[in-house]
Nucleic acid binder design. Structure first.
Length: 225
DNA sequence: GCGACAG
DNA sequence: ATCTTGTCGC
């Protein structure tokens, strides 16, 4: 059973990752065809003690915004590579509680199984909310891939320790690719399909862009107060 | 021991 | 992640 009791030390966090990684299911539900896809993101100032989380739900195939929610929460611990989830998920969970809609799929800003212990923020979030989840990161945490062609949708498997853990995929011609990996209740192929389905020709999927815009607006709003 | 290292 | 204007390439 997954709880929202987040550890604060690296030792405890490592133990949680190693315990929960066994719960991850790398297979989508039968007849999986997401209609509502959510983007989740967190924003914060340099040495802030509070952070802003936001979730934006888009409908397919219109990419129209159908729901969104935000939350403010304390920053639990500093950023440590491999432990992003313990820093950002508490705030995201608070925003999730404010969300009325139940999305069919979640796209996180960070890795899924393309992680040192195969348990990135998308895996944790998917388990926590019980919804198919995807990691879509702007840079690599672990793994390597073959060079990509310059064209939109050029792709190459992301391999770590002889294992394909994700896909490097260019969502906009001649622009840096993003790195997609399964979180929970999904496989790599489906994860890539979902990301492409919410791609509108920019570097990042629309879900991520909208969520990013939302949390930045929230952060700046509470600045001018 | 030396780098690498999601956001 | 965030601090930041103009500027270069597609």
């Amino acid at each position: 059973m997954t709880t929202r009791d987040f550890p604060t030390t690296i030792a405890e966090a490592t133990a949680v990752q190693q315990r929960l990684r066994a719960e991850v299911v790398l297979q989508p539900p039968p007849n999986f065809a997401p209609r509502l896809v959510a983007g989740l993101d967190v924003s914060m100032d340099r040495d802030a003690t509070e952070c802003f989380a936001g979730i934006v739900v888009l409908a397919l195939p219109s990419l129209e915004v159908v729901d969104q929610a935000t939350a403010v929460a304390p920053v639990p611990m500093p950023y440590v590579p491999g432990f992003l989830a313990f820093r950002e998920l508490p705030a995201v969970a608070a925003a999730w509680d404010q969300l009325r809609t139940r999305p069919d799929a979640l796209i996180f800003d960070g890795q899924g199984i393309a992680h040192p212990r195969r348990f990135g923020i998308a895996c944790y979030g998917g388990l926590l909310f019980g919804v198919p989840s995807i990691g879509c990161a702007k840079s690599i945490l672990v793994g390597t891939h073959a060079p990509l062609g310059p064209e939109r949708l050029a792709r190459a498997p992301l391999v770590h320790r002889r294992e394909t853990v994700g896909m490097a995929i260019r969502l906009r011609e001649s622009v840096h690719p993003v790195y997609v990996s399964p979180g929970h209740l999904i496989d790599l192929e489906t994860a890539v399909d979902v990301v492409v389905s919410v791609s509108a020709g920019f570097r990042e999927p629309e879900t991520t862009r909208r969520a990013h815009r939302l949390v930045n607006a929230e952060r700046r709003a509470r600045k001018g107060e």
